[in-house]
Simulated scan of single mutants.
Amino acid sequence: MSATGRSTAMTPPRVTAAKGRTPLVCLTAYTTPMARLADAHCDVVLVGDSVGMVLHGLPSTLGVTLDMMVMHGKAVRRGLQFALMVVDMPFGSYEESPAQAYRSAARLMAETGCGAVKLEGGEIMAETIAFLTRRGIPVMAHVGLTPQAVNAFGGYALQGSGNDGERIRRDAAAVSEAGAFAVVLEKIPEPLARRITQEIAVPTIGIGASPACDGQILVTEDLLGLFGDFRPKFVKRYAELGGQAEQAIAAYAQEVRARHFPAPDHVFGDAPATGVADNA
């Protein structure tokens, strides 16, 4: 057990047992240092395919590959002791058939040591979720706004408004009944997310959904304020590290150009107090 009483082998059934109790704390991580920071406070750490946009500068998640998810999954695994690690299945790695999904999921679990995988889609993915869970692969589902289908949606628009809410309800019910141990609800109306949370038997993880969800997830870099021009409504920024980082880099550049860095304290052996080379 950890100092907080959390098991060091947190499994999907324990996540499922959190239904209706203290909300689950979930964040993304793509690197070992960030995983270590999140591990002390989170129940679930997701190696999200958002890594493509956050770390690789891609315009969407569609260019993320299975190899990329394996690489970042291995890095995150090295930084975790307590949190359940979930790895996203990237676009094109599971939609073709349940057999394709199994091969991809089995590789992710074997090579990264993750405890579960996450895939996007509702009713259309129920058969695949059932296929995976029957074969020992825990699945976190994802409905509502599913970023891998952004082109079909015509952008990152709110999903489930008006009569479209019934589609989201059916999707959530289908993946829950198929065996998913939790369901991410992304960017849907608050009343709809609240209703789905009451209706399905497994925990809901909200992002732009409702405080009534059984847990919440954000992209860690968003809550840290690392991207000054990205401010979606559903993100609360707990810090403004992007601005602080820019100021620090600017101060470093100024000191290097003025020959104030490195100072005598930062070099080995005796050096002139000015730090200027003899032939400068």
Score class of each variant (00 low, 15 high):
82 F>W: 11
41 H>E: 05
87 V>A: 11
172 A>S: 02
112 T>L: 10
40 A>F: 02
214 D>S: 01
11 T>S: 12
203 P>Q: 09
128 T>Y: 06
6 R>A: 05
255 E>Q: 09
203 P>Y: 01
87 V>L: 12
153 F>G: 03
157 A>F: 09
216 Q>G: 10
211 P>I: 08
69 M>A: 05
204 T>F: 00
255 E>F: 00
33 P>S: 12
166 E>M: 14
59 P>V: 02
201 A>H: 05
4 T>H: 10
212 A>H: 15
38 A>P: 00
82 F>K: 15
172 A>N: 07
25 V>H: 08
60 S>K: 04
166 E>V: 11
112 T>Q: 06
38 A>Y: 00
88 D>R: 11
234 F>Q: 08
99 A>I: 08
70 V>N: 10
212 A>N: 07
110 A>Y: 02
82 F>T: 14
141 A>N: 03
225 G>Q: 08
57 G>Q: 07
206 G>N: 04
106 A>S: 14
156 Y>E: 04
81 Q>K: 15
234 F>Y: 13
46 L>M: 11
76 V>K: 04
191 P>S: 01
67 D>W: 00
185 L>G: 07
223 L>W: 07
95 E>K: 05
55 L>H: 15
119 L>Y: 03
223 L>E: 02
22 T>R: 12
56 H>Y: 07
140 M>T: 01
274 T>P: 02
239 A>Y: 09
271 A>R: 08
148 Q>V: 12
279 N>C: 07
94 Y>C: 08
255 E>P: 00
3 A>Y: 05
115 G>T: 05
265 D>Q: 14
69 M>I: 10
173 A>H: 10
184 V>R: 12
261 F>S: 15
62 L>P: 09
156 Y>K: 06
278 D>I: 09
116 A>M: 04
211 P>K: 08
45 V>M: 14
186 E>W: 02
104 S>R: 09
143 V>E: 06
180 A>P: 04
164 D>Q: 15
191 P>T: 04
158 L>D: 00
57 G>W: 08
52 G>H: 13
16 T>F: 03
169 R>C: 06
129 I>G: 03
99 A>M: 08
88 D>M: 09
189 P>A: 14
169 R>G: 01
43 D>Q: 07
44 V>E: 03
6 R>K: 11
202 V>T: 06
93 S>V: 12
154 G>S: 04
150 V>F: 01
13 P>L: 13
193 A>F: 03
143 V>L: 02
241 L>E: 08
154 G>W: 09
204 T>R: 03
39 D>E: 05
79 G>D: 01
270 D>G: 13
20 G>W: 00
73 G>D: 04
251 A>C: 01
214 D>C: 03
7 S>W: 10
271 A>W: 08
267 V>H: 13
236 K>L: 14
250 A>Y: 03
258 A>F: 01
191 P>E: 05
148 Q>F: 09
45 V>W: 13
246 E>Y: 05
95 E>S: 10
218 L>H: 09
57 G>T: 06
24 L>E: 00
59 P>W: 10
151 N>W: 13
105 A>M: 04
144 G>E: 04
178 A>W: 03
193 A>T: 00
41 H>R: 09
268 F>R: 15
214 D>R: 01
64 V>S: 07
140 M>P: 01
272 P>N: 03
100 Q>R: 06
176 S>K: 04
277 A>F: 14
64 V>K: 13
53 M>T: 12
278 D>F: 13
94 Y>P: 02
86 V>Y: 09
109 M>H: 05
222 D>N: 11
101 A>T: 04
